[in-house]
Computed example of a mutant assay.
Amino acid sequence: MIKAFDIMNTKVLSIGPNASVEEAVKIFSQNKISGLPVVDDNNKLIGILTERDIVVFSSDLHVIPLISSSNWISPYTDVSKISSSKRGYDLISKTQVEKVMTKKLYDVTGDASWYEIVKIMKSGKINHIPVVDNERKLIGIITRTDMLNYMAEHGISE
């Protein structure tokens, strides 16, 4: 039977609750990932921060990125909107991860079955499942990509 131990990525990056959302965004970008388990000083899982959490938080602040190929501001641009976006970006850079992270966790232990993992991902509509030990310390993570890679390499016998 396929277990979480077989699928999980043990080179999991994590972040602390007091880190800034800006730090998290840099980690996402530099490592081409979309989620970070949030752990306390003892490496115990306390939350997860995903790109979706940041997008929802940003939209609540009405932070809209200004994307322009020329990098010029049109003379017709409402400058008050730029100022509002700047304040929003400043707020994001100062906001701690714990204020944005998802606290309702879906996690598994290393002996969770393939079926359990798939069921949790489907019912929770999630893409990341942290793997913890019996003391809730983070030992790995399983993403949809990890699941697909495992299937491609090994097939499924369940």
Rank of each mutant, 00 (worst) to 15 (best):
D40C: 00
D40E: 08
D41F: 07
D41G: 08
D41Q: 10
N42A: 06
N42G: 00
K44I: 05
L45W: 05
I46C: 04
I48G: 00
I48A: 01
L49H: 04
T50E: 02
E51A: 06
R52Y: 06
R52M: 00
D53I: 07
D53R: 02
D53N: 04
V55S: 08
V55Y: 07
V56D: 06
F57E: 03
F57I: 05
F57G: 00
S59D: 12
D60H: 11
L61P: 04
L61R: 02
L61I: 08
H62M: 13
I64T: 12
I64L: 06
I64R: 10
P65N: 08
L66H: 11
L66G: 08
S69D: 15
S69E: 15
W72I: 14
I73S: 07
I73L: 13
S74W: 13
Y76D: 12
Y76C: 05
Y76K: 14
V79C: 04
S80N: 10
K81Y: 14
I82Q: 04
I82E: 03
S83Y: 12
S83G: 07
S84P: 12
S84A: 15
S85L: 09
S85R: 13
R87V: 09
G88H: 02
Y89C: 02
D90V: 09
D90C: 01
L91N: 04
S93P: 05
T95G: 03
T95Q: 00
Q96F: 02
Q96L: 03
Q96G: 07
M101F: 07
T102R: 00
T102I: 05
T102D: 02
T102W: 03
T102Y: 05
K103W: 08
L105D: 09
Y106S: 14
Y106K: 13
Y106T: 15
Y106W: 14
V108Y: 06
V108S: 09
T109L: 07
T109P: 06
D111E: 14
S113F: 10
W114R: 11
W114S: 12
Y115Q: 15
Y115C: 11
Y115L: 15
E116Y: 09
E116P: 05
E116C: 09
I117V: 15
V118W: 10
I120M: 14
I120D: 09
